[in-house]
Design a protein around this nucleic acid. Structure first.
Length: 212
DNA sequence: AGTTTGATTCTCT
DNA sequence: GAGAATCAAACTA
């Protein structure tokens, strides 16, 4: 995906990165996953957003950058959440990536999550390996060192394709998008009912399978 | 300087 | 389905 793609508004970006590959490279390792669930946070008028009321603080600075910047924050003292800024500079919209599906290097993902090889995981662990915003950050070794960096770089990026050896494998868009209310923003008054969560219908790796 | 609060996950029950 | 874990940042003053 290019800069222009992320300069769209947050709802379009959230829908359009579904089915695309989220690719992480570090220490010579490469992990490919597919994005299956996202949420839009629509800037200073969105009561669910960190920047509601134009709250530009040290934490939220990356959101004010041009679309395509990484915003990583710590939640509940323990878990990281990954966002990508959307829209133009000064318009702090973003997309929270809530769940991905593992595609390659399952052993590395399994080790990051459970300190075991993939084949040794229980079915329960396999099912719950990347189906949540904190889980996928653990799985992909995502932390605050990536904060405010570009999602167009080579450490963490989103693409239409990946290489498996010499094979160039393209994402397919043969799926239906479901939407629903965003998760765990009960404090957001009327904004908690906005249908700004998007996910691939019937995908096994979506975090919450309801759409009310 | 002290208090409150989570865009969550895991472990029970 | 409920409760605990755990802390940076925001908020109160």
């Amino acid at each position: 995906m290019d800069r222009e793609f992320f300069n769209q508004d947050g709802i379009n970006v959230a829908k359009q990165i579904l089915g695309k590959y989220l690719i992480r490279k570090y220490e010579g390792k490469t992990i490919v996953t597919k994005i299956v669930e996202t949420e839009s946070y629509m800037g200073i008028t969105d009561k669910g957003a960190h920047v509601y009321g134009d709250k530009k603080t040290e934490r939220t600075k990356p959101l004010y950058l041009e679309g395509g910047h990484i915003y990583v924050y710590l939640i509940y003292g323990m878990y990281y959440c990954l966002n990508v800024s959307a829209n133009n500079e000064g318009i702090p919209e973003c997309v929270l990536i809530r769940a991905v599906e593992p595609i390659t290097n399952l052993d590395e993902i399994a080790f990051n999550r459970f300190k075991k090889e993939y084949a040794q995981l229980t079915n329960y662990q396999k099912k719950n390996i990347t189906n949540g915003p904190g889980k996928l950050c653990m799985a992909l070794n995502i932390n605050k060192t990536l904060n405010s960096k570009s999602i167009l770089g080579d450490e963490l990026y989103i693409s239409d394709f990946y290489y498996e050896g010499d094979n160039k494998i393209y994402s397919d868009s043969n799926f239906e998008i479901e939407n629903g209310k965003r998760i765990n923003i009960d404090y957001a008054q009327e904004a908690k009912d906005y249908l700004w969560r998007f996910f691939i219908k019937n995908n096994k790796h979506v975090s919450v399978n309801k759409n009310k």
